[in-house]
Design a protein around this nucleic acid. Structure first.
Length: 352
DNA sequence: AACGATCTCAACCGCAACGAT
DNA sequence: AATCGTTGCGGTTGAGATCGT
């Protein structure tokens, strides 16, 4: 897990702070047939004995007690009856106090599991169905800026959960980007090498491989921006949606325009001063190759990091305006504030 | 039809941040 | 300041569905 996470910008409880939610989407979802087969109305097919059958040995070795350690606490897929109990309780009392909720609601689950179930599935404002081209592009852009901050990205996509976006990224976008990266022979060779390193028993080596993978993704991402506009335009046009086409086509341009702007250039130079040159890839974020595996200069970069924070803030402000215009709504916290960069020493020094 | 490979995504885990005491 | 309990986040897992042969 990444250390030095920014202060949590999202409070899921805010969704429900005052009014009880409307009934949850317990009806068959509008997804494809395949996805609907997985929906809870068919869940009876699934084994309810729990996904994790193995004892959490690592936790035991570390002397920590897993949150669901108690015997008799149910794990695994949720039954419709459990969903109903949880929904009824949250509707009546609002979310929160997850620790006590299972007992109060009569659920044989741990609070953590209840919170997750509510946040990712039962919450009334969950938007289901495939990701739209607009969402697709938004995820690409936001990931390019904030990295694997799924909750931050989710905050900009109403109705989408961080888990869903994370899954979408890992199953669709990551693969797409990787294919782009592997298009070149050099990238393929690098990936093969990384695969070996990634399997290394040495944690440091694996860590380095992860960073390098992120860098490759960033490279692919930048090249994808230039191509996705064309494909997105074609897709949108085929559905006779000119506005959507323009929107989809404009999105990457906005990012690239920002990136290539004076503010972006200033930011890049500052960050590169902190990171050192990153093999032709702008080292904007940790997930985009921050640190590049070399933290040799990290100890003396406090001043540079502050300068980078200022430029970063300017870049973000400009980006925020552009995104607000793009999405037709103002406000929101799409990006980490500059003071988050105060924690960026850990981003710039991933191997400390 | 049968079987293995691959894909999808709900759910789990450990950890860190945060607030209360 | 230190400790403890709770909550939220990101990474990972694995059951079930689908695809390919």
């Amino acid at each position: 897990m990444a250390t030095g996470d920014p202060p949590r910008p999202i409070n899921p409880s805010a969704f429900m702070a005052t009014a009880p939610p409307p009934p949850p989407p317990l009806t068959p979802c509008p997804r494809s047939r395949r996805r609907c087969r997985r929906h809870h109305h068919n869940r009876a097919k699934r084994v309810v004995s729990g996904r994790r059958r193995s004892v959490p040995a690592a936790a035991a070795e570390m002397g920590r007690t897993p949150c669901c350690d108690s015997k008799g606490i149910k794990k695994g897929p949720w039954a419709p009856e459990e969903d109903k109990l949880l929904v009824d309780f949250v509707q009546a009392n609002g979310p929160g106090n997850w620790r006590m909720l299972p007992k109060l609601a009569g659920l044989n689950r741990c609070g953590k599991s209840c919170r997750l179930r509510w946040t990712n599935y039962l919450r009334p404002d969950i938007k289901r169905g495939p990701f739209t081209a607009e969402e697709h592009n938004s995820i690409l852009q936001l990931h390019a800026v904030v990295g694997n901050k799924w909750s931050m990205i989710a905050a900009q996509l109403p109705g989408r959960t961080d888990n869903e976006i994370k899954n979408y990224w890992n199953t669709h976008l990551k693969k797409q980007l990787r294919q782009e990266a592997l298009a070149g022979a050099d990238a393929a060779a690098a990936a093969a090498q990384l695969a070996v390193v990634a399997a290394s028993p040495c944690p440091a080596a694996r860590h380095m491989a992860q960073w390098e993978n992120a860098r490759l993704e960033a490279e692919a991402r930048l090249s994808l921006f230039s191509s996705s506009a064309t494909s997105a335009t074609a897709t949108a046009s085929s559905s006779s949606s000119t506005a959507a086409a323009e929107h989809a086509a404009a999105a990457p341009d906005i990012f690239l325009r920002l990136w290539n702007s004076e503010v972006g250039a200033s930011f890049r130079s500052s960050v590169q001063g902190v990171h050192g040159p990153a093999a032709g890839v702008p080292a904007l974020l940790p997930a985009a190759g921050g640190g590049g595996g070399d933290d040799s200069s990290a100890a003396s970069t406090n001043g540079s990091a502050e300068a980078a924070a200022d430029d970063y803030q300017a870049f973000l402000e400009m980006a925020m305006e552009e995104f607000a215009l793009l999405h037709g709504r103002l406000g929101g916290g799409a990006f980490p504030p500059a003071d988050v960069l105060a924690e960026a020493s850990c981003l710039f020094t991933p191997f400390e």
